[in-house]
Amino acid sequence: MSVGPFETLASVRDFLTRDVLPAVPKEIAGEVRAAVKLLEDVADELDWLPAVLHAECEEMLALRIKTQDVIATETDDELRRKIVSPPGNTREQLELHRTMSGMVTSVVLKLQAGIREPSLESDESMKWRDLLDQHYAMLGRHAETRLRWQSVFEKRSEP
């Protein structure tokens, strides 16, 4: 077996910390430390990302189906199939996630515009608000998951 990806990233971090950091001028040292931290965060992200992307795409699809009663939204079969059986490649999974996120953006903006319409009936309005709240809650959870992969603010322990 060759050197694994996480071991490779760890050895680059080690090299930067032990050999590069003491050798660079003080004004660059902060950037080298940031680079080390980024490699650490990204290693952890790569470890969890495929499972997270899959779960989030499924959740976005489920909410999209729920929204169909209120807003005319279509999800083609090919997309559904990809979400149920996600691509093995992380880049393709990221692309799929991006596509779903774009669709969610469009729905959220429609729901926001809709609840501002004075002509919307009261019970319809409640339905729209409830769906919008579910979207905000879902997206908030997705953001919370990613707090683990950044080092500027307090981290979260488990995705």
């Binding site: 950037e31 997705h142 953001a143 707090l147 950044q150 603010f153």
Partner: peptide, 14 residues
């Protein structure tokens, strides 16, 4: 890298 770190903190804002 310090600016990339800030960019990766977007979920905190979201």
């Amino acid at each position: 890298p310090s600016l990339v770190m800030l960019g990766r903190a977007m979920p905190w804002i979201e």
